[in-house]
């Protein structure tokens, strides 16, 4: 039996790292900023935060973390991507840009709700989490297609904005920008499930 506190990492190369760390701490787990492969080894699950996906992707390259992150996910450790994180986890992008991780069987379109003046907040119904979540969409992507084994958790305006594929979770919006920790708690329960299964 694993007696120590659950340890959840937030990829800390660029973006809204602090908010995710704070949400994790509020949920009672140990939160770790992950900037290197050594730190990645220490965590039970990982959040890839919102930020600029092109920047994070470049920094993943220069930090030599791509292969390790893919192995981390393949080993069954849960990964949760928000906004830029979702883009990095997708198998394909509509723009055809090259991507690094390709963890989830989904196709994603970047900036699909428009530029910053079109960024918005709204209330979302999220399956298995909550009937009303204050979701903040910032130059947000959306999921155009899902493959086998991918469950759609939420849609907005007929666009898929949150999905789960086994131990992998992704959303278009920024749960870290609100005080509602229900999605973070949901991800922590996914980590507990993965540990119980292994």
């Amino acid at each position: 039996m694993n007696q120590r506190k659950l340890r959840v990492g937030v990829l800390a190369l660029q973006g809204a790292v602090r908010e995710h760390l704070k949400a994790l701490e509020k949920c009672g787990v140990e939160a770790v900023a992950v900037k290197s492969n050594d730190q990645l080894e220490l965590v039970d699950g990982l959040i890839i935060p919102g930020g600029e996906s092109t920047t994070i992707r470049r920094l993943l390259d220069t930090s030599g973390m791509v292969a390790n992150l893919i192995r981390f996910a393949q080993a069954g450790k849960p990964v949760f991507g928000t906004c830029a994180g979702l883009i990095l986890m997708a198998k394909t992008l509509v723009s055809g840009e090259t991507h690094n991780l390709g963890l989830m069987n989904i196709k994603v379109q970047r900036n699909s709700f428009g530029r910053q003046v079109d960024s918005f907040e709204t209330e979302l119904d999220i399956k298995g989490v909550t009937g009303s979540f204050n979701a903040v969409f910032i130059r947000a992507p959306h999921i155009v297609e899902v493959g086998d084994g991918v469950e759609v958790l939420s849609k907005y305006d007929d666009r898929i904005v949150m999905v789960r594929e086994k131990h992998l979770l992704g959303c278009s919006f920024h749960p870290e920008l609100t005080d509602d920790n229900s999605i973070t708690e949901y991800f922590i329960s996914m980590i507990k499930e993965s540990q119980a299964a292994s």
């Binding site: 809204a16 790292v17 930020g51 600029e52 079109d118 960024s119 709204t122 910032i138 907005y156 305006d157």
Partner: peptide, 23 residues
Amino acid sequence: MNERKVGTDKVKRGMAEMQKGGV
């Protein structure tokens, strides 16, 4: 479909939060 609120503090400040750690 729920209302879409643009230009709120959360949306405007949040955009800058996403730039953190960047150049």
